[in-house]
Design a protein around this nucleic acid. Structure first.
Lengths: 297, 297
DNA sequence: AAAACTGGTGCAAAATTTGCACCGCAAGCA
DNA sequence: TGCTTGCGGTGCAAATTTTGCACCAGTTTT
């Protein structure tokens, strides 16, 4: 759109770090781009870039402007989505940042179900850790996030939250397989697989283990992929840990999942969130409601 | 600003009701303006105006766009205010829609006090009834509203609320003048002045009176100006009614105000509000906090 | 000291926007 | 009925704005 042209260029300069590079990226002369930027700064009344010998960088005023630009863009997209909505088209795009556990079963199933009723709606699903997910929200790069225990919460507005007790995943022939619930000290006595400290599962396990001196998390195999870890347990009889939303019980008959005793380990909180105060595009808002319903089921 | 030019023009057309009139208002040719509108509609992808034989009118898509335009404008103003704030200039403008009772004492005093510390901040104070006040908020015509019992509340976000018991205002020589609190039936037995049904005071009085059959509001003089009513009571010894925030006790020594017994009449709620979800400009937000402090005092 | 960057500028060409004159159309009016 | 008025829309040339090119001055890297 015409009226966002300047903003596009400014955003390009921010991304490229210098006017010349940005000009190349966007198929325009450096001089033209330079003049646009200068003219904008004059009209705006304040400089927005610091001129450095190797390029430009935003000054504080520019930071504020950047946020405004992002917000404008997203707001305009929402407007368009609303308008096309009332002309009966019901199209749209939903972008989601989510934890790994949502990737194998829950999101594919929920999104497929939604798209059966709304084939015009497209999706972007990105695997992001809790810190990155929140950053994406505040940069308007994602509409909604579905993550475990996000760390900093300033821009994260919790739309829905659900507790997920950690499950121990093991082969059906594992000594602990016949127990209804698994005690943490039993599980950790056996060799086990665990994710790194970046992940909520590990943090919750460590927190629980630190309450006593006798047990500790000491993984034989460590990974940042839950998919890998669960599959690994199929080959070597280790215990791995995962939230139940990432597990499809019965899918692989020789693997079973048992919840850890809740007196031992606090459950992880799966949080559905969006940027604080933001009005989501129609499609995203509608899908969010659908997500909540699916989480409740 | 350049990038809002199209929006300015569109807004002008909406206000004028026809492209030609709008063109005249804004010192541009009708043909140029027409082409801008057409080009915008093509780029936007949807028509926003209905072409009628006597002019143009917004269609539903246009209504959505209009709201977007207003919101953009206010958002950009807020951005500028934030930017100028961080360069230390602390300027700004606050526009307030308020009930009559706030006009004589409370707002002048509070605003004057605020401007003593922030001489760069300018104010617009408009007397609006509760319906109009809320409409102004949603049209971004006012930043904040201070009204009694606003009627429809969809867009009205209550920031602060304070109960105001109705006071009976009378001359010091009135028979009821020596009572600490005045019973409603006593007050209404005497000839009295009252505002019209548009005003919260009247509604509260009527509601209270309807609880019994014996008393009714039957004003000898009716007006829509509280200023007029209170002054009228100075000349003819009638009882008039007003919220205490509109009264400066001691200012006119021959007039006194006594609260109505709270078991007879419910107090009116003075509500400080803004448009739901809107982020106010720095100056308005700061003044709002000041207002709340003043209301608490 | 030279090379490779950076942002900024004068000037002419290219692209866009504007104003003018005019068209067709529907409503109001006599 | 026929006329006038006010409306949105359009072709075309003039006015304005934006762009690209060549080049400058300054800083960092080599």
């Amino acid at each position: 759109m015409r009226h966002l042209k300047d903003f596009e260029y400014i955003d390009g300069v921010i991304r490229a770090g210098s006017i010349r590079k940005a000009a190349e990226d966007m198929n325009i002369t450096a001089s033209a781009l330079n003049r646009r930027i200068n003219r904008f700064e004059v009209e705006f009344g304040y400089e927005i870039f610091e001129r450095l010998p190797r390029g430009v960088r935003l000054n504080p005023a520019g930071e504020l402007l950047l946020h405004h630009i992002r917000s404008q863009r997203s707001d305009f997209a929402r407007l368009k989505s609303q308008v096309s909505d009332l002309s009966g088209v019901r199209r749209g795009h939903v972008s989601i940042a989510c934890s790994q556990a949502l990737l194998p079963y829950f999101l594919p199933k929920t999104i497929a179900q939604y798209r059966r009723d709304h084939p015009g709606v497209t999706f972007t699903v990105n695997n992001r850790d809790r810190v990155a997910a929140e950053r994406e929200l505040s940069e308007f790069a994602s509409d909604i996030a579905l993550v475990f225990e996000p760390r900093t919460m300033v821009d994260f507005e919790i739309v829905y939250s659900i507790a997920q007790p950690i499950h121990a995943v093991m082969r059906a022939d594992h000594p602990l397989a016949d127990q209804k619930t698994v005690r943490l000290r039993d599980a950790l006595r056996f060799p086990h697989v665990a994710p790194s400290e970046k992940y909520a599962v590990r943090v919750l396990l460590e927190t629980a283990a630190r309450r006593t001196t006798s047990i500790e998390v000491n993984p034989a195999v460590e990974s940042d992929s839950f998919d890998f870890m669960c599959h690994y347990s199929e080959w070597e009889s280790l215990i791995s840990f995962q939230f139940p939303i990432g597990l499809e019980t019965g899918r692989t008959p020789n693997m079973i999942a048992r919840p850890l005793a809740k007196e031992d380990v606090a459950p992880g909180n799966l949080l559905l969130g969006q940027q604080r105060g933001r009005t989501l595009p129609v499609a995203s808002a509608k899908f969010t409601r659908e997500l909540i319903a699916a989480l409740q089921a």
